[in-house]
């Protein structure tokens, strides 16, 4: 729902962006949980893609790519974060009727999508 925000070019914003990415790098190893969506023969492809767009704020193409991965490979990691974060996503996915589980991220296993953004 919320449009993506491009950082302005002024110095303050740049600094903020730099700090942001530095923090990401530092905390990345400490957030080793994945949200997995599993394939099932009932959920409509369009619906799954719509949920990825409207709940996570993913672009249409990213949502489509993740949905196709669920459909073809049987599962896809659609978000990652702390255990609490992915559990919160799982509650929301169960609300939508998607088959979601959480799991500890195994190193070098699959490349997770960029973490899901929380809706306000």
């Amino acid at each position: 729902m919320s449009p993506s925000v491009a950082y302005g070019t002024d110095i303050d914003e740049r600094t903020k962006a730099a700090e942001q990415s530095a923090t990401d790098v530092l905390t990345a190893p400490d957030i080793p949980w994945n949200l997995v969506i599993w394939n099932d023969p009932v959920n409509l492809m369009s619906y799954v893609s719509f949920v990825f767009q409207s709940y996570f704020g993913y672009s249409e193409s990213k949502a489509h790519k993740l949905m196709m991965e669920v459909h073809k490979k049987g599962r896809s990691i659609v978000a990652h974060g702390s255990k609490e974060q992915v559990e919160q996503h799982a509650v929301a996915m169960h609300g939508y009727g998607l088959w979601a589980t959480v799991e500890k991220a195994a190193s070098g296993n699959e490349t997770p999508g960029k973490g899901g953004r929380q809706r306000g």
Binding site: E87, W99, T101, E103
Partner: peptide, 25 residues
């Protein structure tokens, strides 16, 4: 299917999650 386990191979963890969240789902 409406209220699936949240962990694939951890019944205890899934049950604990249910205690906290199933009512709200």
């Amino acid at each position: 299917r409406l209220l699936p386990n949240v962990m694939k191979d951890d019944d205890g963890g899934s049950l604990e999650f249910r205690q906290l969240t199933e009512r709200s789902v």
